[in-house]
Write a protein that binds this DNA or RNA. Sequence first.
DNA 1: AAAGCGGGGCG
DNA 2: CGCCCAGCTTT
Length: 364
Amino acid sequence: MMPKLKSIDKIQFQNSLLNWFKKNKRSLPWREQAHWYPVFLSEIMLQQTQVDQALPYYVKFIKRYPNIHALSKATEQEVLSLWAGLGYYSRARNLLKTARIIVTDYQAKFPRDIKQALMLPGIGKYSASAILSIVYNLPYAVVDGNVYRVMSRLFAVPDDIRLNKTQKSIQKISDQLLSNIDPGNYNEAIMELGAVICKKQNPDCIKCPVQTFCEAFKKNEQLRYPIKSAAPSKRKITHHALIIVNKEAYLFVQRPASGLLASFWEFPILEMKKKDIKDELLESELKKIYGIEGKVTLKGDVFRHQYSHIDLTYQPVIIKSNNKKIKYLNNYRASKWCTFEELNELPIHNAHLKLIEWFKNLSQ
DNA sequence: AAAGCGGGGCG
DNA sequence: CGCCCAGCTTT
């Protein structure tokens, strides 16, 4: 599946796209200045995340860390706290690592060499191509979710875009179509087209600047593309979230340095096979797993939280304890007894903020 | 309930 | 390499 493009078609395609982009591009904060840092920060945030969702976080970050030096001096806990709620938290940890590498190894400038860029943590083919093309106008074609959709319609790609093979062939098409004169604007334009015109539902083909090049449009089959197989279903688990109360303090633990929600602070969890667990069993598990003696005083309503691969149900449990210390850390990095106010600068996941709110409302 | 949105890390 | 893991929003 490799469409042949006559060079005249290519130039017309690029011009139509670039002219449309010039007139219609959204005004976004990272497009305002011609500096690599806003582009870099925004591209990390825009991985797996749509513009509207990333925007408020971008504003917060640029305010707190206006340049690479400020960011490089931040702590991981600080960056994770600011990132909390945006998801895919390894992006935040890699952002900080990369900021430090850029300051120490690259004179505080994003490397122009794609091989060096790809060695930075959190920078893969997409981000390297986006940053190098937008910032330095280097000819690397981006392929993101928008581009998969646009290309699969333009060329009526008959194969499943989840397949590695198909993704490679779309990368090749994109490499061919890229404007070597203006690769930065071209890349932004093709993604913008996918975001605002060539949408998954209700594509606005009437306004599309490259409508005449589109195989799917010619056959009126836009909605058949991209062809994409169904995602596997999520596994369901239940966590008992333990709000362990000792006088005015609550027990918090810090998650392991890698994996889901790495380094986040939360209430200790009991993972049980069954859903309705007797208080006595919770208390004996608490003793066994954490070495803490306590009594269940109240259970709240369950609520769900969905991750990419897990459908998690939380069962809030309030426990009264006289223990001063947690005996077993298990996989956790640290533990501490503290009040909710003392948690301010720590990264806490939404589900656990919800637990705190629920508990606060109870005690009023 | 399902779909949209890239990169790391392992074998 | 291919394959599995990772969050939240919108529809």
